[in-house]
């Protein structure tokens, strides 16, 4: 399944904090029709109570997402930030993570998008893959890495 679309791979997103990052990245999902206008507010609200930062072996990332009712078409938006922003850690809201890359997920039905979730998890735990994401120097390189690892 094609989870990664070229218009959803963003490089050098400027954001001062997690909210601004979610706004900017989520807006790309919205303007391309993947999610409803309720998606970004719902993601931000969810992030307060149930943060999605993950400290991986390599570096920190975040996977903001929300319930399927806000989603039109399932997709993953891969956004490399110009500089890391602070997210709360999943499962431990007190713990902070410096997220370098946002993997913003638009999931409609997790049972039908299991492959997408599996490939996502496979990447998080694959140091080599994460280092390739980090080494990408422009949008095209980032797209190639994302397509290689996230399209099944």
């Amino acid at each position: 399944m094609e989870a990664v679309h070229k218009e959803l791979v963003l490089y050098g997103v400027e954001a001062e904090d997690a909210n601004e990052a979610i706004d900017k990245v989520g807006n790309v999902l919205y303007t391309n029709g993947y999610v409803r206008e309720t998606y970004v507010p719902a993601v931000k609200e969810r992030e307060v109570d149930y943060p999605t930062g993950l400290q991986l072996n390599t570096y920190g990332v975040a996977m903001p997402h929300t319930a399927g009712v806000h989603v039109n078409t399932p997709a993953i938006c891969v956004a490399k930030l110009a500089k890391p922003v602070i997210f709360g850690h999943m499962g431990e809201p007190e713990r902070k993570v410096e997220a370098r890359i946002l993997f913003m997920m638009a999931i409609k039905d997790p049972n039908k998008q299991l492959e997408m979730l599996q490939s996502m998890m496979g990447v998080f735990t694959n140091d080599e893959a994460m280092l390739e994401f980090d080494a990408a120097k422009d949008e095209q390189e980032l797209y190639e890495v994302a397509a290689k690892y996230l399209n099944s």
Binding site: R46, Y50, T52, M63, H65, P110, M121
Partner: peptide
Amino acid sequence: CGSGTVSSAMAAQ
């Protein structure tokens, strides 16, 4: 998980 969907499905898998 927070929304009862995405991350819990990943953990379940």
